[in-house]
Design a binder for these strands. Structure first.
Lengths: 159, 159
DNA sequence: GTAGGGTTCTTGCGTGTGCAAACACTGATA
DNA sequence: TATCAGTGTTTGCACACGCAAGAACCCTAC
């Protein structure tokens, strides 16, 4: 049995794992060091901040974040306990709930955004020139779209 | 505050996250459906299987898997409970321990490998032609190396 | 030889997450 | 209107992981 696996697909997968892991790790470390925010907390603020009314339905936020509904519910609990978001009832569907950015949440987000941008600039844009970055984006998009098409829409959780 | 973030770096990061997440998810689902093995368990078997003597020091395995020593210790507990690996004392350093593939572990690995290969073939190689795959690998490697160089060697855990 | 600082691994504890069930509500059908 | 299958959210539980501390051991310096 040959397990040496010098196969180009395995190498590509390995690089995907390593690039992703190292980039995500360093970005989260810097973010936490400069703002005290965890990765998931920042992502909640970011996604709410760029949504109309600075709010999002719990379910939509869960899908965007590749989190199960229960996982998101508790993440919002924690972010809400920190005062950065609030829950708001949905007017048209009484089962529904929104997560809304608070003023304090918006402030913390404004503070964190430049840190995130700078990290991306240094660690991602610093590695590749603009044309290469476009190339990388295009290739990754093809992979994502292909996986989603082949595998049906069951591509959410399982971390 | 403009949060629309059409910025190419943010897009690139988004694609990295989505390509990685969807690929990893679909591969783990298929693996589990066909072999009953979880992703981390399979990775343990794979790494041991391609190592000389089909064994690896716990610490080395932890580093390879981007896992903390304690996380790996317990992962090996579980895989050992399933009978697929065993712990073995190190002859030259009595603090040390090896994880070794058992016969049953080798059997299950041999069974799982084609499933993994086929998944990679379908979902990764199926999205890109060979030249593009090389290109992707090269770009990702540049990102990884750049991050590691910039950030010092503190790029392990934090999931 | 023995002291002491560094290492390898494991264990106690806290935490973040998924799954399944519970709950509240909606919307379509009769 | 009454019913009922389906949807949106939260909660109970289990589990995998990281951190810090502990235990056993190595190795160098004296």
């Amino acid at each position: 049995m040959n397990l040496i696996a010098k196969d180009s697909r395995i190498t590509a997968m390995g690089m995907l794992v390593e690039a992703y892991t190292s980039l995500r790790t360093v970005l989260e470390q810097e973010l936490h060091a400069h703002t005290g925010l965890s990765g998931p907390t920042f992502e909640v603020l970011l996604r709410l901040g760029r949504s109309p009314g600075r709010r999002l339905r719990m379910n939509d936020l869960a899908v965007e974040m590749h989190l199960s509904p229960s996982g998101l519910s508790r993440l919002v609990d924690r972010v809400a306990a920190a005062g950065l978001v609030a829950r708001e009832a949905c007017e048209t569907d009484r089962r529904g709930a929104y997560a809304v950015l608070t003023a304090e949440g918006a402030r913390r987000l404004a503070e964190a955004l430049p840190v995130h941008e700078r990290g991306l600039e240094r660690h991602l844009a610093g590695a590749l020139d603009p044309a290469e970055l476009e190339q990388l984006t295009a290739l990754l998009r093809r992979v994502r779209d292909h996986v989603r098409a082949e595998a049906g829409p069951i591509v959410a959780p399982l971390r």
